[in-house]
Every structure is written in C-alpha cells, then in structure tokens.
Simulated assay, not measured.
Amino acid sequence: MENINILLTYLRLNGWHMTSFPFYYKKFEYIVLFEDLNNLNLTNDDRYSVLLTFIDMSDINRRLTVKANSFCFKFNVVEFRKFFNIAYTENLGDVFQEFYEYFNKFIPTEANQNVTNEELQIIVNQLNRRDNDNNMCCYAVKRNPQINGKQCHRTIFNSEKCRRLKPALYIEFEHDDTISFCFREENELPVAEILKNFAHNEIKNIKLS
C-alpha cells in the first residue's frame, strides 16, 4: 500500500492532519478517514503511521478503526472479517493481502479539498473529537496565553477545522499559531467582523499592559 506513504507525506508537507476518500468493497460504500498518527495521543507504536476509520455510508454509526502502514493494518481478525463480510478460509493471509492491494487503488496521492457536504461534516466531527470541541460556528479568534513562561499554541485540529470551515479567516493567521479560532454552537460571524473585534481587543490589551 505504497499510496499510504505518498498521501501521508502530502498531508505533512501541506500542514493537514487528515483527509477522506471513498472506498467500495463487496457492493458496500465506505468513507475512509485518513489521519496522521503523529498528531494523536495514542499508544506509541512506531510500526504504524496512520489511523484509518472506515465508515459504512449506509449506517455512519457503523465504523472500523485500524492503525496502518504501507504493509498492513493492525486489527482484530474476527472484527475485521465481520465488518467487511469476509468469510473464514484457511488462507486468510492471502485474503488480507488481496484486500491491501485492492484498497491501495482507492488511496489518493493528494488530499481532496473538494469534499461533499456529508464528508465535510464527518471530517469536522472527527476533528471535534480530537479537540474536545463540538461546535462549528466560528465567531472569534484569540491570542493564546503564556503559562509558566511557556507560550501556548493552537492545535492542528483547531487549525484544520477553521481551514475547512472558514478558509478566508484561516489565511489571515495561518503562520501565527499563537492565535486560536473560537467556535460556538450557532451565530457564526463574518470574517471582517471577527478581524475587527480581534484588532479592537489587541489595542485594548496593549493599553492595559
């Protein structure tokens, strides 16, 4: 599955944490979430570089998550077989190898930024899980504080959510990760208003310092 390394390299070079792509197997349609394991606080295992989440599009609550590298997946055999409706045979190793070769054909070499609204929702929901934030309406930006003399930085998940939902605002602060994007449940604000409010707060803080 050499495309895993190619796509992962693309994500890292372009500052993305994750992407998605469709996968079809045995007449079932899946959306695959492809995440960089380096950004996730999971058990260290240098053998694997990405986290794949297969989502059954006929029931988006039906999911299978596996660690992966360019050679194989890390999975529970019974769970994997059940999820993909793979019958038991004595040569399962060959079956899995055929699966890997087939799956590799679906892995793109670049992240697709023109995702459907449904895919975008799935991606943002996953980013929210990673960042413990369930909101989607951007209404402000804030300068992160220093704690015990150490500067706090925004997470890659916060960056990517804004990059996907409000790209014009993200561009304004792309190279300053001491600033985070703020989201709430409703009442999204226009970019111009967010920037105006931020400038006002910056001036106010300068006067108070």
Rank of each mutant, 00 (worst) to 15 (best):
V95T: 13
C72N: 14
Y30L: 08
N38W: 07
E186W: 03
M57I: 14
I60M: 10
T116A: 02
T89N: 06
N134S: 10
Y48D: 10
K166I: 12
N69D: 10
L7C: 05
N158T: 06
H175Y: 11
Y24G: 15
L52A: 03
S70N: 14
R163Q: 07
N128F: 00
G15P: 05
F198Y: 13
T109W: 02
V77W: 07
V32M: 05
I179G: 07
N104H: 01
L7G: 04
I203F: 05
D59E: 12
Y48K: 04
N197C: 03
E188H: 05
R129N: 15
S209A: 05
Q113W: 03
H175D: 15
I171E: 15
K105N: 09
L195E: 11
A111G: 06
F157D: 04
E29V: 11
Y170T: 07
T9C: 11
Q151I: 03
K150I: 14
F173T: 12
N134T: 13
F106G: 00
K150T: 15
E202D: 10
K74C: 10
D133Q: 06
R81L: 08
N134C: 09
D45R: 03
E35M: 04
H153L: 09
S49Q: 14
C162R: 01
F99K: 01
V50H: 03
E98I: 01
K161C: 04
V115T: 08
F173D: 08
E174P: 14
E118Q: 08
Y170E: 09
K207W: 02
Y10H: 14
Y102T: 09
F23S: 07
R143F: 02
S209T: 12
T9D: 15
N201E: 14
A140N: 14
S159V: 02
T43P: 15
F83C: 08
E35W: 00
L127Y: 00
S180K: 08
F173L: 04
L120C: 01
I55Q: 05
M57V: 14
N69L: 02
Y139L: 00
N69A: 01
E160K: 00
D177V: 03
R63Y: 04
N61S: 12
F73H: 06
D94E: 13
E35Q: 09
R163D: 05
F99R: 01
I86F: 02
N3T: 11
T43S: 14
D133C: 09
V191K: 13
D56P: 10
S49A: 10
L195I: 12
N44S: 13
A111K: 05
H17A: 05
P108K: 00
